[in-house]
């Protein structure tokens, strides 16, 4: 007797426009590419918070401080949810953190740079979270269901981050001349980084292309970059901010924005761990990880004690009634 095989391959499911779930048999390629992007987005959330933490003590008002703490709480929460997702796919959290600290897995280019001024914090939240949001929003349609579900909450919370950033931008854009100058100087610094944030063009990135084919990444790097311009160019103009790229314009014939090709050499140098702040931030995280190792060890020991005592009190295990 032949029982019909009920299991579809990933390709079959994708062809049926089905969502992939945890119990499905995943190919190594799918799992590796998926875990790769999850680790990248998780690392970016985590290191983004590292960039902003320096300003938590110094946030210039009561309201700003509360918003900044809340924002960073969200970012750590996003990192937690995404690392946990990779754990459910068989990765080990401690190994993922170790690999981040060793520079073996990357994170967003923006978080390798210093945030020396308060306006940098506004711009990170408005322009860079805004860039990340293009990717996160598209990931709500990723082929991997559990990742898509997390992205729905992530996007809801990122919307608040962008509003918080824009509130700071508006304060500067409508403030004193000194503030307006600081704002423009800030955009001059962060604009090229935002353009690069989306990564290499599709024709240059084999991996990105494959992720699009497998539905892991619903939109390509270039699509996301163009979408970002669509959203942010009007916003920048609204605040009288100049786009610091003399070759930037909308090409009616090609129906897309044209811009100066980013300095990919700088990009590669930065994201491979040689940014001005990369090592300092990773060192801080390493120290924190080591200094709190005893806490995690105590948690484990407590759990073992508790399990041991549960087994001696027979009958009290896992009962609901």
């Amino acid at each position: 007797m032949h029982i019909e095989e009920n299991t579809l391959s990933i390709e079959d499911r994708l062809a049926n426009e089905e969502i992939i779930e945890l119990g499905d048999p995943l190919t190594d390629e799918y799992r590796d590419l998926l875990c790769g992007i999850i680790q990248f987005t998780a690392n970016s959330e985590f290191m983004g918070a590292f960039t902003e933490r320096e300003w938590i003590p110094r946030a210039p008002s009561y309201q700003r401080k509360l918003a900044l703490i809340a924002k960073n709480q969200d970012e750590i929460g996003h990192a937690q949810m995404q690392y946990q997702l990779a754990e459910n796919l068989g990765r080990d959290r401690e190994e993922m953190l170790t690999s981040l600290l060793a520079g073996n897995t990357g994170f967003g280019n923006a978080f390798h740079y210093p945030a020396d001024e308060w306006i940098d914090i506004g711009l990170l939240a408005w322009m860079l979270d805004g860039a990340a949001m293009q990717l996160q929003h598209s990931l709500m349609d990723t082929s991997y269901g559990p990742y898509a579900r997390i992205m729905r909450r992530v996007c809801r919370e990122e919307e608040f981050h962008i509003r918080h950033g824009e509130h700071i931008i508006r304060e500067y854009a409508t403030g004193s001349r000194a503030k307006r100058e600081r704002l423009q100087a800030g955009v001059d610094r962060w604009w090229p980084r935002a353009v690069m944030f989306f990564g290499l063009s599709d024709d240059q990135s084999e991996k990105s292309k494959r992720m699009v084919e497998l539905g892991i990444k619903p939109k390509s790097n270039d699509e996301l970059r163009q979408q970002y311009f669509d959203t942010y160019v009007p916003k920048l103009r609204k605040y009288d901010i100049e786009i610091p790229d003399e070759n930037f314009y909308y090409d009616d014939a090609a129906e897309k924005w044209q811009y100066t090709a980013p300095d990919w050499e700088e990009f590669n140098t930065i994201v491979s761990g040689n940014g001005p702040k990369t090592q300092q931030r990773l060192d801080r995280r390493r120290t924190a990880f080591e200094d709190t190792a005893w806490v995690r060890e105590a948690m484990v020991a407590y759990n073992e004690d508790e399990k041991a005592s549960r087994f001696t009190n027979s009958g009290s295990i896992n009962t609901i009634n």
Partner: peptide, 9 residues
């Protein structure tokens, strides 16, 4: 590898 013996809930 402390996390290995912590539990996911």
């Amino acid at each position: 590898m402390t996390d290995n013996t912590m539990q996911a809930f």
